[in-house]
């Protein structure tokens, strides 16, 4: 069975390599598996988009990478490598030094991510000094420089303003400055534009992409906005119920999705060039973590389901340009037509 590990291990050169990551939540009613067998990597300067419904595990993957899973959630298996160095099992203090310095994080809501009681300058200077050990004057200069770089007008004055004195879009720019001010090699951006006005979203995405390109920073961009993905990402991973359903170049996944779930997801984007009576949708809802069906987690909603899907869980398989976790792409499933006839 041609099971393809995505990507092949030991490819080297990647900023981030995630190998068979498994995250569990112990609860009173047994252990919930929130993420299972997640594998991907991100090359320097590359933007990996991560899409999926709410609760698919997108944000949790980001949290696991920066080492800030909410307890009692824990990494129960697999590895996370940053520039070839394993970081998933580091002690808190060592991981803290990596956060902000080597991995920057951007969160969803700029209105709540900044501490309301400190000026943006103080928060920037604090971050810069934590990681770079600059003098007060140099750190301040760098803070102002970063505010300019993220497009805050009159940065030299605004550096002493409090977060509530900025608009939402401006605050997200400040957050981006905070995430990038120690020049990390990887950014984990968790829905960075979801809380912003549509008109501001494009600006912020363009800014983020521009900065990442200039600095050669790799980025994991978590979002459920397919438009943002299509514009920004180089590759895209589609997540479903804690697993990667499909991963591949953004063009291939958006234009020619292979996994039935990706197809449904892409079809549900309303086309701009023609009128539609009904928006396409995928019937049903994603299963709760405590009730993930046997076999492929998508099988109860899948329009192409056949017997094997209910029995065995598919790994990522080559699917013409992308890799999809779907039995449709296993040559051994040739007899599926016959099975489909039998099982109706």
């Amino acid at each position: 069975m041609p099971v393809v590990q995505e990507p092949p291990p030991g490819r080297g050169g990647a900023v981030l390599e995630v190998r068979n990551l498994r995250v569990e939540f112990p609860t009173r009613r047994g252990t919930l598996v929130a993420l299972d067998d997640i594998s991907f990597d991100i090359a320097p300067g590359e933007v990996l988009g991560v899409v999926g419904e709410s609760g698919a595990g997108k944000s949790m993957t980001g949290a696991a990478i920066i080492g800030l899973l909410e307890p009692p959630g824990r990494i129960a298996g697999g590895q996370i490598l940053l520039n070839g160095r394993r970081i998933d099992n580091l002690p808190y203090e060592q991981m803290r030094r990596i956060r902000g310095r080597e991995i920057g994080a951007i969160f969803q809501d700029p209105l709540t991510t900044l501490n309301p009681l400190y000026t943006v300058g103080r928060q920037l200077i604090e971050t810069i000094q934590t990681h770079l050990g600059l003098s007060d004057a140099d750190a301040r200069k760098r803070a102002i420089g970063w505010l300019e770089m993220v497009g805050i007008p009159a940065a030299a004055q605004r550096v002493d303003s409090y977060p509530h004195e900025f608009s939402g879009g401006m605050r997200q720019r400040v957050v981006i400055a905070l995430a990038l001010c120690a020049e990390p090699k990887l950014i984990v951006a968790d829905e960075p534009t979801t809380a912003l006005d549509v008109s501001i979203q494009a600006q912020v995405i363009a800014l983020l992409k521009g900065l990442a390109r200039d600095k050669g920073t790799a980025m994991m961009l978590v979002t459920h906005d397919m438009g943002v993905i299509a514009e920004t990402a180089d590759r895209v991973a589609v997540m479903y119920a804690g697993r990667i359903a499909e991963i591949g170049a953004v063009r291939a996944v958006v234009k020619h999705p292979s996994h039935p779930y990706s197809r449904g997801l892409m079809a549900s984007i309303p086309p701009l060039d023609r009128r539609v009576e009904h928006l396409a949708q995928i019937d049903g809802a994603m299963p709760r973590l405590s009730a993930i069906p046997q076999g492929c987690a998508f099988n109860p909603r899948c329009p192409e389901v056949f017997a094997r899907c209910r029995r065995e869980r598919p790994e990522l398989l080559e699917a013409g340009g992308t890799r999809a976790a779907c039995w449709l792409y296993d040559p051994a499933s040739e007899k599926r037509a016959a099975e489909t006839m039998q099982h109706g």
């Binding site: 956060r99 994080a105 991510t113 120690a182």
Partner: peptide, 22 residues
């Protein structure tokens, strides 16, 4: 539980700064 504390941790600030400063 707030986002700004999570963000302070994500910026790699030492625990002392997160707990007492923020």
């Amino acid at each position: 539980r707030t986002d700004y504390i999570k963000f302070a941790r994500a910026r790699g600030l030492p625990n002392r700064a997160v707990h007492f400063g923020h």
